[in-house]
């Protein structure tokens, strides 16, 4: 009998080529940065990098769950903008009110998506597109299209500006905890496994007796909640609710998820690799900044998007090849 009780790292790696590729690339970029730039490993750079990217990490992880079911959530950017305004309005009551308030608002938008997709059977792409427009309009309406300053007297700005135990920014601590919880949900609970099974085959999952509707609704609620948390970090970090922010965030999140190796058709995916994907895309930007700082070559900030697109292209080619390889192997057997 094969001894498969123990976790076999080598097999794991060979089964998840893309996760490996992402982590290796990430490590290589970090190493490159550390060697090339003086302040790259400095406290300031790490803090500001993590602070800013914590928002993208959390919405990417929420998006990852949606994509694993074979769906998509285009509303996350607008929902984050909306909830940043809510958080700003609630900031006088302190973070203990503003955080749950804004997250609940995000879950509210998630609920609209869930009803549209699960009950009304509207394709996720369109359902969340509508929510995207609605949340964007809503954010502008409740804010009067102005940035809404937070209450600097309360503890609200701590979240985005201060560090826990003087080590890590609060934002990344909170996001880190949420990500760990979600990792556990995905890897260790029936709900998480159901999410993956739905993406792998919705009909098969139903016939296996899994609670397909419940899990599908869950991912949209989750994604909304994650966007809500990103909104809180946004308001807290910039000291204001930002109704105009969040444009294109959904696409960055999708890109992170795809770079992390999650199949867009669903059924395969990983929280950790998604985090790595988000960090990787953020790091590209960070390194470009440093490169410009050195003045040797002048990459304009606009290259950022071009390079992100290029990354996505490379990943898609990679995925297409992996899938084609699988097909061929299947034919051969």
């Amino acid at each position: 009998m094969l001894d498969t009780d123990t976790f076999d790292l080598r097999k794991y790696l060979s089964r998840n080529p893309q996760s490996v590729a992402v982590w290796v690339t990430l490590a290589a970029l970090i190493l490159f940065g550390l060697l090339r730039y003086d302040n790259f490993g400095g406290a300031y750079n790490i803090t500001s990098f993590l602070n800013y990217n914590s928002m993208f990490i959390i919405i990417s992880v929420g998006m990852c769950f949606v994509i694993m079911t074979g769906g998509i959530d285009l509303s996350v950017g607008s929902v984050a903008a909306f909830t940043s305004v809510i958080a700003a309005y609630l900031s006088p009551y302190g973070i203990e009110v503003a955080l749950p308030g804004a997250v609940l608002a995000g879950i509210g938008f998630g609920a609209i998506n869930a009803v549209s997709v699960v009950v009304l059977r509207i394709p996720p792409f369109i359902a969340t597109l509508a929510t995207m427009l609605g949340a964007k309009g809503g954010a502008l309406v409740i804010s009067g299209a102005q940035t809404i300053s937070v209450d600097w007297g309360s503890n609200f700005t701590k979240m985005g500006m201060e560090k826990a135990l003087n080590v890590l920014p609060w934002s990344i601590v909170v996001v880190g905890v949420v990500v760990i919880v979600l990792w556990v949900v995905l890897e260790k609970t029936s709900l998480g496994r159901t999410v993956l099974a739905i993406g792998g085959g919705e009909d098969a999952s139903t016939l296996m007796g899994l609670k397909v509707h419940r899990a599908t609704a869950f991912v949209y609620l989750l994604s909304g909640g994650c966007a809500g948390l990103a909104g809180v970090i946004l308001a807290s970090g910039f000291g204001a609710g930002q109704p105009l922010e969040g444009i294109g965030w959904e696409l960055s999140a999708i890109a992170s998820v795809v770079v992390g190796g999650t199949l867009l058709t669903g059924g395969l995916g990983s929280v950790t690799a998604t985090v790595a994907g988000a960090l990787l895309l953020g790091l590209v930007f960070n390194i470009l900044n440093f490169e410009n700082g050195r003045g040797t070559i002048s990459f304009s900030a606009y290259w950022q998007m071009v390079i992100r697109g290029g990354f996505l292209f490379a990943v898609i080619l990679f995925q297409a090849r992996v899938m084609a390889g699988r097909e061929q192997r299947k034919e051969a057997t």
Binding site: I72, F125, G248, L251, I254, A255, V258, L264, T265, S300, Y302, W303, Q304, M305, V306, I307, R308, G309, G310, L312, F313, I316, L317, A320, M323
Partner: peptide, 23 residues
Amino acid sequence: NLKVQPIIATLILFISGRGIAQV
């Protein structure tokens, strides 16, 4: 040819096309 889902395939230029214009 590569059978990429249209949303994703066109996402590439969505992200980088405007970047190229700005560059």
